[in-house]
Design a protein around this nucleic acid. Sequence first.
RNA 1: GGCGAAUUAGCUCAGUGGUUAGAGCAGCGGAAUCAUAAUCCGUUGGUCCGGGGUUCAAAUCCCUGAUUCGCCA
Length: 701
Amino acid sequence: MSKRKILVTSALPYANGSIHLGHLVEYIQTDIWVRFQKMRGHTVYYVCADDTHGTPIMLRAEKEGITPEALIARVHSEHLGDFNGFHIQFDNYYSTHSAETRHFSEDIYAKLKTAGLITVRSIEQLYDPVKNMFLPDRFVKGECPKCSAKDQYGDSCEVCGAAYTPTELKNPYSAVSGAKPISKFSEHYFFNLSDSRCVDFLRHWACEGDHLQPEAANKMREWVGEAGENKLSDWDISRDAPYFGFEIPDVPGKYFYVWLDAPVGYMGSFKNLCEREKIQFDEFWQPQSDAELYHFIGKDILYFHALFWPAMLQNAKYRTPTKIFAHGFLTVNGEKMSKSRGTFITAESYLRQGLNPEWLRYYYAAKLNSTLEDIDLNLEDFVARVNSDLVGKFINIASRCAGFISKRFAGRLVDGAQYHVLQKMVNEHFATWRPAVIEQAFEAREFSAAIRQIMKFADEANEMIHELAPWEIAKNPDRTDDLQRTCSLGIQLFYLLSRYLKPILPGTVQQIEAFLNCAPLTWPQLNDDQTVSDLLLPAGHIINIYQHLMTRIDSKQIEALTAANTQSLAPVTQNTPVRHAEKQQHAIVPIAETISIDDFSKIDLRIAKIVNAEHVPGAEKLLKLTLDIGSEQRMVFAGIKSAYDPEQLKGRLTVMVANLAPRQMKFGLSEGMVLAAGGGNSGELFILSPDTGAQPGMRVK
RNA sequence: GGCGAAUUAGCUCAGUGGUUAGAGCAGCGGAAUCAUAAUCCGUUGGUCCGGGGUUCAAAUCCCUGAUUCGCCA
């Protein structure tokens, strides 16, 4: 097989928070794939970095009273410690706040500018005169210009679904200070993604090429549109000071938007590695490069990696990625990770609780495939699966055979004629143990399929040992050859399984290498004219005394882990990975501006009994409620379908706004509003209930 | 609101038009006692989300409803 040159990246974690089990899906997936390729003898470099720029970093450093540089240095060492703990083996783990990343950001920008793909436009943006900063869309709230719903974000209305710009909001206010924003113009720099050079390229590259998974390519077709359609907008790549990032050359006070330099960080990190290890950078990044470039990412950042990034590279005369591998999100026990449930588990806490990182690597591998599907970490299943597969099936093979070899044969596996008998047995009974199927599964990132296959082999090994029953043979002093051969067979099978599992269990296999007294395991490779027995340890090989290689998980350890991660504070469910400024800011819901008691008393709140609740055909969010408020009945459409089943609402008491102007909705007239907590990005909703004794119609003050 | 994906045994998942729908785990019954209780044999268990359609044949294709998740920069 010819030797490949491969550069692999994982997405850059934001230097604003800890690594958690959700992040680790990606790093473990990438690391397994990289280790597999390295074991096969290819030249592989795996680089990553902290993503260090943007408003949240700036604000957090400000809050901690330190410089952004000090903050990102601290987080960098935390992240690196976490990754080492999970055996994620980067060839370089760097930072986007680096000379190299600055160089390539400026270089790409300059080339795009020369190509006429950068436009400057004056943008009218809302500005917080108290905080002295421009307000991102989600930092402005006000009334929807279409339906007048109150407290809507600056980009879209959650009530009627209208999309608009913040300047169209009625009665806007700053979500930072509460001040009334003023409109201010500012010059912004745009990358002309709508230019035909980008659109035509992307339609070919992202939609038709073999660079994306089928589901992702579908998404691209939706985003890019058909030929003739012009669906892509230019991309705003600048931000006004104050901002932590790279200042745009010759444009004082303007900075590159963090998402411009984040992917450039891949190049920066690799360049840094090249300098250190004398690798030819251009061999990997020049347009005609024969090296392969793969980006492992979460599906949430597909847009940036499959559109902006290739378009930037193409037009700046660099090579484009060979493939983008997007994966799904992690859920824990079938739900989003939650701090209140203790399932928002940080990498650091997992390790600190003494849990074995190899367990998680194995479990993720057993769940991962090449699609964008989410994967679920079911904690009970995690315990059962690791204990059963890894300890019960795999490790046990070594454990049950090694004793005889040590005690009766001084650690020596069979040789001579007996070795030939062993080879023959292997080729007869284990002819299916050839690497091809597993190798294809690893290459295609179908790790769950690889594991199914490997565990099937492990089952076969245990069955064979059971059938040969070395403990019976041992009773017969005339059968020492049989005993040695049988136990050697078990050890040989264990050796081969270890080779297959090494990309997934690098730490355990390192111990296995010591136990088996052999060189670092390589990937089993067979030509057509070779047989499985060619993959075994040599005749007469001597192994060391077996020491336990892996313990079982005690479910108490899992309980301790979730307990350690449970925050009794506000039951905030964590969103899917938040990467940057805008997203980061969604979660913050500041206290609204002060009102007088007169303002409040205008609202007539009444206890209402839900006498009927039903689904509304065609409505995704609404339930139709019939409310009894003593004097009359009201029909109300409430956007609580996501949180409540109609049946569980019937008969309940709640609180409604009784003097709200009726509103005509698509499905009928809504005569009021029920009160519910939540409704933010978490999607959680809790309708209010009065204490026992309240009667329909009572006023709430 | 628009678009997309998913829903298969108690749990986690295979299975993209062709026997009677499978595996691992859990459960149940048995065997074994080499192994830090790890193994082996047998076995219970399914309205393939609901409804309709296409077909000689549907978990699989189409329509529709429910639920869940995601994207709409």
